[in-house]
């Protein structure tokens, strides 16, 4: 009974949401209500997730696992931000500065590491993938796109070279659109499999 109820609810809500995109005038209010409920539920799940994060760090601390000191830092930072947010409110300038002063340098340093890793990876591409048409094409395209993006080539507006440059800057967008079309196709099938109850991630197989 419980299993059938969850299946029925998933199918009915899925079909209403899908139909709502095509019959906006008729199903608009129902669609808004369902989406609002969805957002509310996801927000509650997000809150539970934060509780889960805290619980896992407390467990790590109690079990004295390796890296437990990191958990102390995380918990202290969490409590400080929570208390500061409750006292000052999230709109407060001091609170925002306090958060951003820590967050931006920390994330920027990780992005710096990522940039270096990306550069090394690009250099090792041919070693990893071998001298195939795809790998050479990938590398050449990446280098040319990078040079085009940083305006390395300067051309006269309207000249044939300018047209070639414009074509080259549009090329990645065309490729991306192709990949996104394919992904949309895959996504459509994932949704339909859930709607047709072929896949039941919310219940038993």
């Amino acid at each position: 009974m419980k299993k059938n109820l969850s299946v029925a609810m998933a199918v009915i809500i899925g079909v209403i949401v899908l139909a709502g995109y095509f019959f906006r005038d008729q199903l608009g209010p129902v669609l808004t209500l369902i989406i609002d409920w969805g957002i509310l539920l996801v927000s509650v799940l997000g809150l539970l997730g934060i509780g889960y994060l805290i619980k896992s760090h407390i467990t790590k601390l109690i079990k004295k696992e390796k890296g437990a000191f990191n958990s102390v830092v995380v918990l202290l930072a969490f409590i400080s931000v929570l208390v500061a947010g409750l006292i000052l409110s999230t709109e407060n300038d001091i609170f925002q500065k306090l958060i951003l002063t820590v967050q931006i340098p920390v994330e920027a340093s990780l992005l710096g590491v990522l940039a270096v890793t990306l550069m090394i990876t690009s250099l090792r591409l041919l070693r990893t993938r071998g001298w195939t048409l795809m790998s050479v094409g990938f590398l050449v395209s990446a280098v040319i796109s990078m040079l085009v993006d940083v305006a390395f080539f300067q051309t006269e507006p309207g000249s044939p070279a300018d047209e070639i440059l414009k074509f080259w800057s549009n090329l990645p967008l065309i490729g991306a659109r192709g990949i996104l079309l394919g992904m949309a196709l895959g996504g459509l099938l994932v949704g339909l499999r859930v709607l047709l109850t072929i896949d039941r991630p919310y219940g038993e197989d």
């Binding site: 990306l118 990893t128 990949i179 992904m183």
Partner: peptide
Amino acid sequence: AALYAYVQNILIGESIF
């Protein structure tokens, strides 16, 4: 794009599904 250069076992586009 980032992983293509580094990971041998990768699925991209609609293949991921």
